[in-house]
């Protein structure tokens, strides 16, 4: 596998490109639509990073949309109904999602393999139905016309302007999403290189042995799942601001499946895998738009082919020193 150094250098290059080259050329070309696509990709890869963390403890999570939906609604309600700052609503949405994950995770994380996956698969539907039924989420109409993010000012100095005053808020949202994504993956990197990451992998490898070595596996599993859901909530919160709306169908079971596929595609052994997977999956899908009614068919065939040929993901294509740690 790739050395740590190579991965970090690659990530740094990627960060610089995303912060300078990409916005420069898209703005130059007047392609706000691309800017929006990149914003979405950044948010989707944050949610995928969460799913990747549950993979790290050996659980296939097909329910991330539920937490993205929760995060989207929590942020929308806080901002639109209670006048809370959007910026504050991001961590609050993440925390709310994490708290729900703790309550749900305690019982369901005992399940392994396909049983866990099935329960998570259902959870997106439960979230959708809840959003339809609860009065506070305004049912099928959803929450629309959400206000733009306000300014951030410290001691009279405006750090971030009021988005409503901006000529092109798309580029502002782009930077919010990209910076959040960059920070998220650095933190996940740090997490996985710390003892916690080592414990996660130990759990994935053998829960009984971990337990016999005195590791509180139930607690660690819940921690992993809570972090995962926190990231889902954060992604959902920013998404609701970007689209200035959130509906029960803003995140669907299909998205849950895509989050999981992003991880597979990028490579489960690589922290940055979900970014690669999300980019490729999203752009691949858009490119295949030309194929019209064959879009899904070709897309599925390519995905299956890739998984057969590259079981360790796209990042495994990059050669590395032998014996290097992932």
């Amino acid at each position: 596998m790739m050395s740590d150094r190579l991965q970090i250098i690659g990530y740094a290059v990627f960060a610089v490109v995303m912060l300078t080259v990409v916005p420069f050329f898209t703005v130059l070309a007047g392609r706000n639509d691309y800017l929006y696509t990149f914003t979405l990709i950044a948010l989707l890869s944050i949610a995928s990073a969460g799913v990747w963390i549950t993979f790290a403890i050996g659980r296939i999570n097909i329910g991330q949309s539920a937490y993205a939906l929760v995060g989207g609604y929590v942020s929308a309600i806080l901002v639109a109904t209670y006048g809370v700052s959007f910026w504050l609503s991001i961590p609050l949405a993440g925390l709310f999602a994490a708290c729900i994950a703790v309550v749900i995770g305690l019982p369901i994380l005992r399940l392994r393999g396909v049983y866990f996956s099935m329960v998570t698969l259902v959870s997106t539907e439960v979230a959708r139905l809840s959003a339809l039924a609860l009065p506070i989420t305004k049912g099928a109409k959803g929450m629309v016309n959400l206000p733009m993010p306000g300014p951030i000012a410290i001691g009279g100095i405006t750090l971030v302007p009021d988005f409503a005053t901006l000529e092109n808020p798309r580029i502002a949202f782009y930077y919010v999403a990209i910076i959040l994504m960059l920070i998220t993956f650095l933190l996940v990197w740090r997490l996985m290189r710390s003892r916690i990451g080592q414990l996660f992998v130990a759990l994935q490898q053998n829960e009984d042995l971990a337990q016999s070595a005195g590791i509180d596996i139930a607690r660690l599993r819940v921690i992993a799942y809570a972090i995962s859901s926190f990231l889902g909530g954060v992604a959902g919160a920013v998404f609701s601001a970007v689209s200035q709306s959130v509906y029960p169908s803003s995140f669907t079971t299909q998205d849950s499946i895509n989050f999981m596929l992003n991880c597979f595609l990028g490579g489960l052994g690589y922290v940055f895998g979900p970014i690669v997977g999300t980019f490729v999956l999203r752009f691949g899908w858009d490119l295949l738009f030309q194929a019209q009614r064959f879009q899904l068919l070709i897309y599925a065939a390519i995905l299956i082919g890739l998984m057969l040929v590259l079981p360790n993901g796209l990042l495994s294509l990059i050669p590395s020193r032998k014996g290097a740690k992932r």
Binding site: R195, Q205, D208, L209, A210, A213, I215
Partner: peptide, 22 residues
């Protein structure tokens, strides 16, 4: 364990390191 039970994908050193957790 009766069956030789280890953390297969970890290095030998990491197997022992992680078991120091408690």
């Amino acid at each position: 364990f009766q069956e030789a039970t280890i953390f297969k994908a970890l290095s030998v050193r990491d197997n022992v390191l992680v078991a120091h957790h408690l």
